[in-house]
Design a protein around this nucleic acid. Sequence first.
DNA 1: GTTAGCACTCTTGCCCTCTGAGTGCTAAAC
DNA 2: GTTTAGCACTCAGAGGGCAAGAGTGCTAAC
Lengths: 357, 357
Amino acid sequence: MEFSERKRKILKAIVESYVESAEPVGSKAIAESSELNLSSATIRNEMAELTAMGLLEQPHTSAGRVPSHQGYRIYVNELMNEHRLSLEETREINKALKSKVSRLDELLSDAGKVISELTNYPAYAVAAPAQAVRIKRFECVYVDANTVIAVAMLDNNTVKNRIMSFPVGLEEDFVKKLAAVFNANFTGITGDEMSAELISAAEKSTGDSCGAVAALASFAISALAPETVRRTYLAGAPQLLTLPEYRDVDKAHRLLNYLTEETALEKVPDAGENGVKILIGAENVAEELKDAGVVLASYDLGNNMQGVIGVVGPTRMDYAKVAAYLSYIAKEMKQAAKGGEIPRLLEHPAEERNDEQ
Amino acid sequence: MEFSERKRKILKAIVESYVESAEPVGSKAIAESSELNLSSATIRNEMAELTAMGLLEQPHTSAGRVPSHQGYRIYVNELMNEHRLSLEETREINKALKSKVSRLDELLSDAGKVISELTNYPAYAVAAPAQAVRIKRFECVYVDANTVIAVAMLDNNTVKNRIMSFPVGLEEDFVKKLAAVFNANFTGITGDEMSAELISAAEKSTGDSCGAVAALASFAISALAPETVRRTYLAGAPQLLTLPEYRDVDKAHRLLNYLTEETALEKVPDAGENGVKILIGAENVAEELKDAGVVLASYDLGNNMQGVIGVVGPTRMDYAKVAAYLSYIAKEMKQAAKGGEIPRLLEHPAEERNDEQ
DNA sequence: GTTAGCACTCTTGCCCTCTGAGTGCTAAAC
DNA sequence: GTTTAGCACTCAGAGGGCAAGAGTGCTAAC
């Protein structure tokens, strides 16, 4: 049974009709809508063969056909047309990104929101260090004898800080020395490399007796921890409930629960540099996504940071369109992060974040 | 028609039965379960009067009764027993709070999660400054000629920072002077008070010509902005879908959408110091909450920060239990924030946050 | 004032039928 | 050999009717 050109056209028409209507597609509809000029009986024969090949499925005998996961796969790989964004769409994306480009947090969260709105599916945005982050520079701000603010600048152009209080008063000179020793010994180092030996060496060379070195070291370790550095945002989760495939409350609940779990989105794969990846049904690793579709794009944020933005929906998804959106926004975000535009006032673009109480 | 003791008992029994079962309550059930020792016919008469008084409602003629919003109100004000938490419950709450008490972010987010888990309703946690925040101390870390990290410590014991890059190289002494001038002129000041005059005065006294003062000022303004300082967390939103009143996908969608909107939770009222507030149905301001119930508790976080933690659910809620949870956790969070425990390593408890790209 | 009794109401579930969409197969037409 | 008209068949879904059950309100007796 060969996969003739005609079969491809029929499969394509079925996928596209089903994506739009969410209803099983019958032979008559295809015969009428497509420009194949074949009777429904012929289409019917072809559809039977496509079903035998595993590309279509039949909810029940007297219903039309629905694409199988494998059918979607073939559609995505071989049949779908590239979707071109309208001017308005690109404008909307750019507007969302431009406004707050100076903070990665907001960049990610706004990107997720705009994608979710444009596609009507839940969207997520993740940024994670490409390699383990390292400390670039250390500073201790002496506030008063009992209070010091530790500041660490990381190689992903992030600054972390922590207020530390000491019941025993500290000398200002001692605090300066602390910073100097940390700068000398701990820059260029990852969290894993912060060994007990290094720390106790620092303790010796500063003559610390009140735990200041230990406190600083613990701050550094937590600042470098992957959980601290990575950012994940989920937007438009409730959109799920507007989809016919999630009218089933329990099904919706299961997926929403999964998406809301912190760790879920951390596990998403990336798509390789500048690529768009499409995962259909069982191609997803997570059990909860086995009957969903995921489209994601990854991009380089510079400064040792890697971004991933994606969309989660039913397998019946307009993959071409979603992929086009994601590909476009990924490119734009890379641009934005690379400092394509310098915000007013000379602040460093996309290079800051707030560290607070 | 007076509101006799007997009527009160019947109303109480009806509310409690309905809260548990989510099904309209019939006279027979009350006659059997309550220890009033009355026949169902008598109960029936009383129920008819309670309905006439507006405390009960009838979904249709041959169904049982359901408490009206007003009925819940009376129940909450006058009838319900105080719920006592079990040892296990308090232990679970304490466990959730103790682990990460050193970061307000996580304290709030964990508190929301544990409350949502215990009650099976969506929960939210907000922290906002009681009064406009002010800058307590300023610092500029000189990284290299083109890069400075601005650090501002606020009076809510928050530290914000921003990396700034300058195309024109800066002298280290100039950067020191910048910090000194800012410390002299801008401490104790709110965002609103940062006037153009103050800024241009600072420009003059530092002899700044490359926009450094303006950049710093803009950083200070954004660090002091209420949006930047306030924190809101929503946990367990998908729990909504497990409730019988939200089997209706559209209803669930509407409420979820509302809760997920950023601004929704910012508008929640607080409950006065250490109080618990219960808002039933139309008592809520937001249209989307008019057929929901909200229970919230507020507490002082110290350092000019005010916390609110709350739960959103159907009007059919175990108000006594939820109020008890919230009251308990609010007290514990206040304790935790006040530095009830000093974490290992002498770090200042609940006084830090990360500021990052 | 309370309660037993009863007629009445209305929802819910169930079964049945009918309809229509869609199929697969066969045989004829091209 | 391929295409198509025709037809019998299948099955989900909508609609109607029916019985059961829960609950009510009212009346009359206690």
